[in-house]
């Protein structure tokens, strides 16, 4: 029974190739609100299934599979250019790491929070993708480069969200990664760090494809001051809540 529950959880805390279901679903969903909801709810179902299967997990096979999935998707992330797809693959890579915590903890509360914090950056990326689509018809890396000079407010928001996606301080995903490493064995620590490094590489490629480069010749309007401050306020609120959560 627990094996099948874990296999089912493999769709929600994605294990390759079961992970393709989530990525296909995200690609077919067009409404940004539904996409964001999907990103927040999907991994939580996986956590419930794992809790049902019994925590801590007693399956090195599933944990090993999850770690390989995380690295695999982080590596694939390097050449993904569609922003929403990028967010989906990042989420796949990050959620897969939850299996490591599941193998070490008897309670599922930390697992729920890990999945939640790892969903923040992919969800924010969906909003960015929507803003870009409205202006250029597509949120495609390399389509319009040099936004830093042309649309500075939008660029600032893109930079902040991509830094969050790379799990850098002081964003929630950074602390989630520290928690993860504290629960990981030395054997799994190296692949986790490699995954983290690949996210950073992929993130800088994304910035090069949107923000940097010769000034874009575009008539598109920048984000309004209110929207920018609203977005920054949201991110600051998320960071502060996370800092309180992690004990700062």
């Amino acid at each position: 029974m627990s094996f099948f529950l874990m296999l089912l959880a493999g769709f929600f805390l994605p294990l390759f190739p079961l992970s393709m279901v989530f990525n296909a679903l995200l690609a077919r969903t067009k409404n940004p609100i539904v996409r964001v909801l999907l990103i927040f709810i999907w991994p939580q179902i996986g956590v419930f299934l794992l809790a049902w299967a019994g925590l801590p997990l007693d399956s090195g096979f599933f944990v090993g599979w999850a770690v390989l999935t995380a690295i695999f998707y982080a590596w694939r992330l390097l050449t993904v250019r569609v922003l929403s797809q990028w967010g989906g693959m990042l989420a796949t890579s990050a959620w897969a790491l939850a299996w490591i915590i599941a193998a070490d903890l008897p309670a599922n509360s930390e697992l729920h929070s890990f999945a939640l914090w790892m969903s923040v950056a992919p969800a924010l990326l969906i909003f960015i993708a929507t803003a870009l689509q409205e202006r250029f018809g597509a949120a495609y890396s390399g389509l319009v480069v040099g936004l830093a000079r042309a649309l500075p407010r939008l660029s600032s928001v893109i930079v902040v969200v991509v830094l969050a996606a790379m799990a850098l301080p002081v964003f929630p995903s950074f602390f989630a990664m520290l928690v993860l490493l504290a629960h990981a064995s030395t054997f799994f620590a190296l692949p986790i760090l490699l995954t983290w490094l690949l996210w950073s590489w992929a993130g800088t490629r994304l910035l090069n494809g949107f923000v940097f480069g010769p000034r874009a010749e575009t008539e598109a309007a920048d984000l309004s001051s209110t929207t920018t401050w609203g977005f920054i306020g949201l991110i600051v609120a998320i960071v502060v809540i996370n800092l309180i959560w992690t004990g700062a």
Binding site: G146, A148, R149, M177, L178, L181, A189, L193, W196, L197, S200, W201, T204, N208, V211, F212, G213, P214, R215
Partner: peptide, 27 residues
């Protein structure tokens, strides 16, 4: 200089090497 590709290229080299240096300290 956000418009200069060489600047971005070498900034990336620095960043990725620094990330390589960040992770062992985390471990």
């Amino acid at each position: 200089n956000t418009e200069s590709w060489p600047s971005q290229r070498y900034a990336f080299w620095t960043f990725i090497t620094y990330r390589l240096g960040d992770l062992p300290l985390v471990l």
